[in-house]
């Protein structure tokens, strides 16, 4: 349903993405991994339209969307949880969830969404989305804004960062639930073995290039070996 064709991207004369070709199918759960700085966040920004590739094409259901803006892609059904959650002044968690679904939402429905990311107290609805919330709480709310939209293309950039152990399990549950029920595709950037373990396909990115793509039986030994090698380096 989503195709990246020969995507190249440079910043300050530095090659950040180098001839990326990928095909994503519906009802599949993809995990992208690779060393820090390998270009993972940049690649999802290009998928979302936050960055524009220097060359290459992005196709969605066969249609060229390379020149569509971020909000146009969002309206087509793209959802994206930022690596660094964004904070606001005067916007509450409830407000943000209502903005995310862009329609009336009652408190019960909002709580149902928050429960999925392990937030169970109603008090959170009236909290402002600012740094009075912990990094982990902000991260979970960020993820909730994407779940709330039920996107066709769901992208999560390192969702595990800053999340404690207990909610980490609920996060895995969320992804497993998406995997079994969603009509769309999901792409998660992660370094977590437990998230890699539920992937249908794993993408390994290194130095802006696709090093290898495959199912977890093929990829897990490669990645474990790879990360050991990196530790030795």
């Amino acid at each position: 349903m989503l195709e990246l064709k020969d995507i190249c991207f440079e910043k300050e004369h530095k090659k950040i993405l180098d001839h990326i070709n990928l095909t994503f199918d519906p009802k599949r759960f993809y995990v992208m991994t690779g060393p820090n700085g390998s270009g993972k966040s940049t690649l999802v920004k290009i998928i979302m339209g936050i960055e524009k590739p220097d060359s290459g094409q992005i196709l969605f259901h066969g249609k060229d969307i390379t020149h569509l803006s971020l909000d146009e892609r969002a309206r087509l059904g793209f959802g994206y949880a930022f690596q660094q959650p964004v904070t606001f002044k005067g916007i509450t968690v409830f407000d943000l969830l209502k903005l995310a679904v862009n329609q009336d939402l009652d408190k019960e429905e909002a709580m149902e969404i928050l429960m999925r990311v392990g937030i169970t107290s109603r008090h959170y609805l009236e909290r402002e989305v600012n740094h009075s919330l912990s990094g982990g709480e902000l991260k979970r709310i960020e993820i909730a804004t994407v779940l709330a939209r039920k996107p066709l293309v769901s992208i999560f950039d390192e969702p595990e960062a800053g999340i404690d152990l207990w909610s980490f399990q609920s996060l895995i549950d969320v992804f497993q639930q998406i995997e079994s029920t969603s009509k769309g595709m999901t792409l998660v950037i992660s370094h977590q073995e437990r998230i890699l373990n539920i992937a249908d396909q794993i993408i390994l990115l290194e130095d802006g290039k696709i090093k290898e793509v495959g199912n977890r039986d093929k990829m897990m030994p490669l990645i474990l070996n790879h990360s050991k090698k990196m530790e030795v380096d």
């Binding site: 936050i50 971020l70 969002a74 994206y80 930022f82 964004v86 606001f88 005067g90 862009n102 939209r149």
Partner: peptide
């Protein structure tokens, strides 16, 4: 970043600005 977040929820840049200012005030 605030504009990008709201645009990623489907708002145009102008709508996103309005939402941010309304919340701020």
């Amino acid at each position: 970043e605030q504009l990008l977040k709201l645009m990623s929820l489907g708002f145009t840049e102008k709508e996103a600005e309005e939402v941010i200012i309304k919340g701020f005030l």
